[in-house]
Design a protein around this nucleic acid. Structure first.
Lengths: 114, 114
DNA sequence: CCCATTAGTATCCTTTTTGATACTATGTTT
DNA sequence: AAACATAGTATCAAAAAGGATACTAATGGG
């Protein structure tokens, strides 16, 4: 399972992990994985506590990694749409697996407390 | 898929993610998921570039989350063994899914460069 | 008595990540 | 002419993560 363990960034798991780590990235991905294009401000409203700066940064990183597309409509005021790519959709199994595990883990923690 | 999106830490995906993020955590988990108990120094040798500090910190976090057990043998020099728990084993699907995706992504990146 | 061994701690420092806040461009509307 | 809307930047500050290095305890062996 491990390859290149000298530097973690050569490890296949870590390569995958790096696509989804970032304080708000899984949440952004989750919204976009529903398939519809979303404007910057729509995402901002869906994720109220994110700062514009972090939203921009995460979106730019995901764009650079072919996970989403950024489409600028030459209008004023500006309109910019973000949409998941086909390649980005391949991340779905990772997020789904994590979501299922996370749900169970929340139960696990409740038991521990009692 | 999203629940509690106000604070990312309430999101099920993020809960799962938090178990495996940390520079060396997936690598530690990968070694322990093979099932055998490993001593501190054995892990250190398997992961040469990790510092003792980070190894200790990651192991303690994983222990606290019921992912592994820490067994101290009262000997001198000390012997401490770390072993994955049954609960920790349930992380396997996440890591396997990520590993498969990571492998494909490395190919994807190669194509992009050429 | 001194050294080696193991599994750590303690301290300080650097890097990375995230946050707060203010600012910008530019057409449209009032 | 001023205000508004959108999608950002820029700058500085704070917090979190990680790294470097030195130190420790206890005992067995030489």
């Amino acid at each position: 399972m491990l390859n290149g363990q000298k530097n973690p960034s050569q490890c296949q798991m870590v390569v995958a992990l790096n696509m989804i780590v970032g304080k708000w990235k899984p949440i952004i991905l989750d919204h976009l994985l529903r398939g519809e294009a979303l404007r910057f401000n729509e995402l901002k409203k869906l994720i109220p506590d994110i700062t514009q700066r972090m939203l921009t940064m995460h979106l730019r990183e995901l764009e650079e990694q072919d996970i989403l597309t950024r489409t600028v409509y030459p209008q004023v005021p500006p309109k910019v749409e973000y949409q998941i790519t086909e390649y980005g959709m391949t991340l779905q199994p990772i997020l789904t697996t994590m979501q299922a595990w996370g749900a169970k883990h929340i139960e696990h923690m409740k038991e521990k407390v009692q």
